[in-house]
Simulated scan of single mutants.
Amino acid sequence: MTIVRLGYVAMSMNLQNSSPSQTMTVAQFQKIKDREAAISKLERIAISNLENCLRLLKYNAAHDIHFFRLSSRLIPLAGHEEVSDWKFMRPLKHILEEIGEFTKEHSMRVGFHPDHFVVFTTEQKEIIKQSIKNLMIHEALLRGMNIDREHRCVIHVGGAYNDKDRALEQFIENWGNIPVPIQKMIMLENDDTTFTLLDTLYLCEKLSVPIVFDYHHHLAHHEVPDWESEWERVVGTWSHSRLPLKMHISSPRNEKEFRAHADYIDDSMFMRFLSNVKGSVDEMDCMIEAKQKDNALFKLVEDLKKYPEIEFIDASSFKIH
């Protein structure tokens, strides 16, 4: 028996005017002649994003959803050289603390998935520097929320630069230059074009980093289709984490666009996965990556109710026997 919690990504399809990813471009910022006014506008957008984030968390609590990916675009232009003097954490302190308190009160697991430009397979020092800077912003936000930062950021391995084996070794070489607090935040995910489950496991085992197994990515890109024989290794990477194993679930849009995410989750595909892993771990958190966000979660819950081996605990969590 395994307890499974379902989660979704960043935005609700039902909660109106609740985007946590409102932004301002550099060009828009530069058009405001008064720099103080421009910074004030950035702060208003950031506060609005965080207030909407809290609204989303309250919505999730009302629907018994305990697992949620925070938007990585909460703070517009954070880290950009144009606003390098902007101390954005100060005006956000109160709302960040409120978000953190709410997640603790409702036993929610939250984390981030920074964009693909966080790369550690490169030899270019400026890219590495910017990648670390990006992760430090995520670390600061989690610290502002008083959330334990360990294993809260999923990243992809990066680019292969026409030599995948060399890129893997470059990642290991660059790892030593990443500050330890940032190292502790990181989880690695297998991708759908370059670094397979086996590639990512190689790094995770070398560096003692948990792997976030993406089932759809594996189906789209693998050396051998048999992921089941590697599942014990996947579980092993989580042996030193205080959090349950985390994985991603999505479904292909269609055969032609196999890598693209569908609107909803194919329940039969998900059940094939679950039937292979049930009992291997006590708990598992499954992040739904689907175009219909929370609606995809609600539909999957309804679809799973037809399976006799599924026993629901609440509106988004269940036991599989």
Rank of each mutant, 00 (worst) to 15 (best):
R109H: 12
M145Y: 05
R109G: 10
G144K: 03
K125G: 01
S131I: 05
I128K: 07
F117Y: 15
I155W: 07
E126T: 15
G159P: 03
V157S: 08
E139R: 01
T121G: 10
L135A: 08
I127V: 14
V154P: 03
Q130S: 14
N134Q: 10
V119I: 15
N146T: 10
V118G: 04
P114W: 01
V118N: 06
V110C: 09
V119R: 02
H156V: 13
G159T: 13
K133E: 12
P114F: 00
N134G: 00
I147T: 07
T121V: 13
F112H: 10
I137N: 01
K125I: 15
H113F: 03
S131M: 09
V118C: 04
I132F: 12
H138E: 02
M136I: 03
H113P: 06
F112Y: 14
P114C: 01
G111W: 10
E139K: 01
E139Q: 04
V154K: 01
D115F: 10
H156M: 09
I137L: 01
K125E: 15
T121I: 12
M145V: 08
G144Q: 04
V154L: 09
N134T: 14
V119E: 08
T122S: 15
D148Y: 00
H156T: 14
R152M: 01
R143K: 15
E123R: 08
M145C: 07
M108W: 11
I128N: 01
P114N: 04
V119N: 13
Q124F: 04
E123A: 08
K129Q: 15
I127F: 00
D115H: 11
A140D: 12
P114Y: 00
K133L: 11
G144W: 03
E150D: 11
L135K: 06
C153K: 08
S131F: 08
N134E: 13
H138M: 04
G144I: 03
Q130Y: 08
Q130V: 04
F112Q: 06
P114L: 00
G144R: 02
V110P: 09
H138T: 00
M145G: 05
L135M: 15
G159K: 07
H151P: 03
H113A: 06
T122A: 11
R149H: 10
V119M: 09
R149K: 02
V119H: 00
I147F: 09
L141C: 05
H138L: 01
R149Y: 08
I128P: 00
I155P: 05
K125L: 11
L135F: 07
I147D: 03
E126L: 13
I132Q: 14
L142G: 04
G111V: 08
I147Y: 07
L141Q: 08
R109A: 13
V118Q: 04
P114M: 02
V119D: 13
K129Y: 14
C153S: 15
L141V: 15
K129N: 14
R143P: 00
I132K: 14
G111L: 08
Q130D: 15
H116S: 15
R109P: 02
N146I: 05
I128C: 06
R109S: 13
I147N: 02
F117A: 05
F117L: 13
E123F: 00
I127N: 02
K133T: 04
Q124V: 13
D148Q: 03
F117E: 12
H151Y: 10
I127L: 12
I137C: 01
L141Y: 09
M145R: 01
R152E: 02
M145P: 11
R109C: 07
R149M: 03
V110S: 09
I147V: 14
R152Q: 06
Q124Y: 06
E123C: 04
I128R: 12
